[in-house]
Design a protein around this nucleic acid. Structure first.
Lengths: 239, 239
DNA sequence: ATAAATAGACTGACGGTCGGTCTAGACCGG
DNA sequence: CCGGTCTAGACCGACCGTCAGTCTATTTAT
């Protein structure tokens, strides 16, 4: 093979990019290290020059991904100093939702791949990282809400962690339902019910007034439930 | 090798037992099919005569385990017809806790092994199965509570699922803290806080009166945090 | 006889290792 | 300033051990 030498960071990112693309496309287990190095056009040794293991690569991909999300949340939510805690909390959910809607097709693909048992590790690592980085932001919002008199939970930190892990298991079950929504149209209703319960539980746990938090939007659920449109089936097949 | 023929169910259980023991001891990934057949004293072909895959074996082990728990819950909690919903809910938690205390050393070992990233699949499958089988019991309790006027959630089924998944992520974080409680004694306090928040959240979500649900018991937490006693370090080493 | 149970050699793929090669750029003597 | 030399570290790829799973043959029970 022709030998091509590059800057450390450039190669690193090539490998991260290739890894991410393949992991999101075929899943973690089904992507071999050989697939990745083949895609980049590099040898086994090079891969292990940059990463300790396949698992290490995944860690670094997830970290990069999560830090990008954090940056987004800080920029679009936390920095809006004119907002009160309830508004920030709602914006928090809206921001995440909007991001998913913007990259709808990617998200649909990702959902299909990520929520398979074989890709549990990926999902879990993304959850862990999200929990680690996003909970502190949640805590800030809750503290602000307590000061402003909107919330009254006993323990901000533990409450934030509880709420966050609730939202993660909510995603888990929601996506599962979404994925078979084509076959089972009643799943849309079930998702709506789920979101409603989550929403009101959130209010109760935080001590927020009823209806102050708004997450449910049937339109959005239906958007994700719809099978991909014809026009988007273009890059199928092909080596 | 000497050929020994046995009843279908007997062989099946031998394999399930061996698998369970090894999975609980070394973890799923680190246990090879060869380990299992060696332990039973049987050939590769025999294993695949009884199971489609290593993963299939895990499924069946987890199913057996979960159904045993379900049977226990039904016998010790659900059949106590003289109890009201609040009492049943409390008994539910006590029953689970007592079981863990009874088999304390096994549980400690299991915690150590199960809560490693490599054994995520095991944990996940146990969670899934628990959710599937135990949620209906939860629903029954909630419905009874609504009838009796103790609870007032909007949607029993979704609330039950939410609560159950909350308790699972609670286990997740609690065990993680417990495992490093030796090094970090402050973890015990953190666990207590976590449990308290969970408890009061539960009350709020269900609409139960404050203090009616009781989960936290520092004594029990400390019991699990303590490193295994001298006397229990007897079966270490040895092939 | 025949179906179920068992045996175990074999396969292919995979993650990871290791000894070595190549090259850009630092360094140096003239 | 220039040509040669040196070296860190980027890169290579054959190789290894392991493991899940397959296949065909053989034994056993009925």
């Amino acid at each position: 093979m022709v030998r091509v030498s590059k800057e450390y960071d450039e190669r690193l990112n090539e490998l991260l990019d290739a890894g991410q693309q393949l992991f999101f496309q075929k899943g973690y287990e089904l992507t071999s290290v050989n697939d990745i190095i083949e895609k980049v056009g590099v040898a086994k040794g090079t891969f292990y020059h940059y990463f300790n293991s396949k698992d290490d690569l995944l860690d670094k991909i997830v970290e990069r991904w999560t830090l990008a999300s954090l940056e987004r949340v800080e920029r679009l939510v936390m920095n809006q100093e004119h907002l009160n805690a309830v508004e920030k909390l709602n914006l928090f959910f809206i921001t995440i939702r909007d991001y998913k809607v913007e990259s709808l097709e990617l998200m649909k693909m990702l959902m299909k791949v990520l929520y398979k048992d074989e890709n549990l590790i990926m999902r879990y690592k993304m959850f862990q990282q999200s929990l680690k980085w996003l909970t502190p932001e949640f805590v800030k919002i809750i503290k602000q809400g307590i000061e402003e008199g909107y919330f009254n939970p006993a323990d901000e930190v533990e409450t934030a962690e509880l709420i966050f892990s609730m939202s993660l298991s909510l995603s888990e079950s929601t996506v599962k339902l979404l994925l078979e929504a084509e076959r089972k149209p009643e799943n849309i209703d079930k998702i709506e019910r789920k979101l409603r319960v989550y929403q009101s539980s959130l209010e109760k746990i935080l001590g927020a007034s009823t209806g102050s938090i708004s997450i449910v939007e049937r339109r959005i659920i239906e958007l994700f439930a719809k099978e991909e449109t014809d026009r988007s089936i273009k890059n199928k097949g092909g080596k």
